[in-house]
Write a protein that binds this DNA or RNA. Structure first.
Lengths: 334, 334
DNA sequence: GCCGGTCGTCGAAGCGCTTCGACAGTCTCA
DNA sequence: TGAGACTGTCGAAGCGCTTCGACGACCGGC
């Protein structure tokens, strides 16, 4: 299996056809008789032939690789990123593409490099921020791209994301249905709002709008991620609003600390305080008690991003914005 | 910046030299006069030239890409994987290489594919298990590879990992120094031990050996990851061993639940029970109270893996096994 | 003053693939 | 029955780069 690699010429000789015929069998770009096709395919598997990626990309101007660009900062919680990543890889493979992983360390220059060197055909950017340095570059690039998340100025770009506003609103609606009148949102750390991360803000907007719509009383607070800070926030919140009975938590790292704080403060979940989280399913399931939650559909988002970028590669039209509908899973915490 | 890409021929014409001269300026494989070099470099940046990756890989038989293969299952906790991944990417860029991300979905066949198609020059496998289906393939591959983690039969392979046995022992030694006589290890979920994941077992072995060496009493238990199960385990443990005063936790997902259970059971940390964790630093820092911990040095492991694989690419000798020394950070929990 | 040895540069031969145009052979239908 | 349209296959021309051998120009040593 080692040694020098098998080339298309050897396959052609083995099958008794021309090199171009082998190529057409593989690409399906011209009709080939069933008989010839079979002989070629047999030779391919007999010899263990794998086309040389570089040669292919040189001749066809397609590398069959897409770039997956990691976020500038780990604003979104890390496990979620990993899911996006595996979802993107899996989806890309279905389209016969591989995935090149790019960190943000290199910044826009790295994106330009892989695009200009034809290493990749297209790009998927994860966890885009409102004012993302990489976004202007994407506009001038010939290669198609899809963003996961929304920048402030999405005109001319293709963006996919969970509809966080709807997610925030969905949580409020659920609490309202359950009869809660006074609710609060514990969100991302303050610094995340300050640097304008879209999903944090959009959740808060959805929350606030829904609170008004349902005629509830509500407050939205940022939430740090150490136990002591979470505890202080929760304690302060409950002291200031004794009647508060519904909590929306949109912060994966803090979810368990919130529950711990409530226990320590003697509030039972869900009897005294109902809790809805926006977080991955496994975090919600492992919590004590298991949390009613809106999951972050990483797989779905990743798949959709790849689907869109593939359509763009084929020159097809795609919608500028794709918002995925949030789904609420009811568990023991409400 | 878009439109047809700049080729080496255009750079050569612009600089008034031969194509080969430009190539030699770029690769440094032949001496070039300072004057010519400058002219060529000026032309390169004036035209914004980026060598075509496919053409380069075809001509040079080097793609300058390494594959990063994700684990078969998410045995190790996910954020740690993400760190490995970014560390590998960052380190690879220092060697002028990019990183192709491969999931385990494809299994060994995916590895063979990217190797045989010359898409990648070398491979780094993350989180290798004791009996890993992908390992036999690596032995017959011409491309060099490095494993993060150890399979049962590591002969002929290059492996890197944190020295988990030493990490387990280090935790025990720390508790012994603090005067604890009865200690316990809460490890990975049972299923992880059953499928023979190396790092979980090695930590347990190190723990057990150190317990004997220090003349302590100790027990090692697997530990599930939902709050209720963790709580049951912790409660059972404390009931069975009232004198237990030191706890080693090697399970990221359960760490916060362990602390929550102790709180709920009225045990103060560290006064009643001291806790040492083996987990990433940020998890330890965010816990309540912040945990004394042995961190999993993902960055270091990733960097080392890349360094080794690059040496192998150059045909240099590398050690079969690289074990990184664990470091203990003392915080409030002991 | 000539010879052997660098040094710096060039031209050309591939690397393995895709794709275009060409062309026999078949089929269809007036 | 012959013109025209397909079908299935081939040969050859690149794609953009690296690398090998060649070759002036210049050097120092005798």
């Amino acid at each position: 299996m080692s040694g020098r690699a098998v080339t298309i010429a050897e396959v052609a000789r083995h099958a008794g056809v021309a090199v171009s015929t082998v190529s057409y069998v593989l690409s399906g770009k011209r009709t080939i008789s069933a008989d010839t096709r079979r002989r070629v395919l047999d030779s391919i598997s007999a010899l263990g032939y794998h086309p040389h990626a570089g040669a292919r990309s040189l001749a066809s101007k397609r590398s069959n690789v897409i770039a997956l660009v990691l976020p500038l900062r780990a604003g979104m919680h890390v496990p979620v990123l990993m899911r996006f990543a595996t979802a993107v890889v899996t989806a890309a493979r279905r389209f016969d593409h591989d995935v090149l992983l790019l960190t943000a360390d290199e910044g826009p220059e790295g994106i330009r490099r892989v695009a200009a060197s034809a290493l990749v055909d297209a790009l998927v950017l994860m966890d885009v921020e409102l004012h993302d340095r990489r976004v202007p570059l994407l506009r001038e690039l010939a290669e198609p791209s899809v963003l996961i998340g929304f920048p402030a100025e999405p005109a001319g770009l293709t963006c996919v994301d969970l509809d966080f506003a709807a997610a925030g609103a969905r949580c409020v609606a659920h609490l309202a249905e359950r009869g809660h009148r006074q609710v609060a949102l514990l969100g991302a750390p303050a610094v995340v709002y300050e640097r304008g991360t879209g999903f944090a803000r959009r959740t808060r907007e959805g929350f606030t709008a829904a609170v008004a719509e349902h005629g509830l009383e509500g407050v939205a607070l940022p939430c740090e991620e150490t136990f002591d800070e979470v505890h202080a926030t929760v304690a302060g919140l409950l002291a200031a609003r004794p009647a508060l009975s519904g909590l929306v938590v949109h912060n994966e790292a803090a979810v368990n600390h919130v529950l711990g704080s409530l226990r320590q403060l003697g509030r039972r979940v869900p009897r005294d305080v109902a809790v809805v989280a926006i977080c991955p399913d496994d975090v919600a399931e492992r919590a004590g008690p298991p949390l009613t939650s809106v999951l972050i559909p990483a797989e779905e988002v990743g798949r959709e991003a790849v689907r869109l970028v593939m359509r763009k590669l084929e020159g097809l039209d795609v919608p500028d914005a794709t918002l995925l509908t949030p789904h609420l899973a009811v568990r023991a915490s409400t």
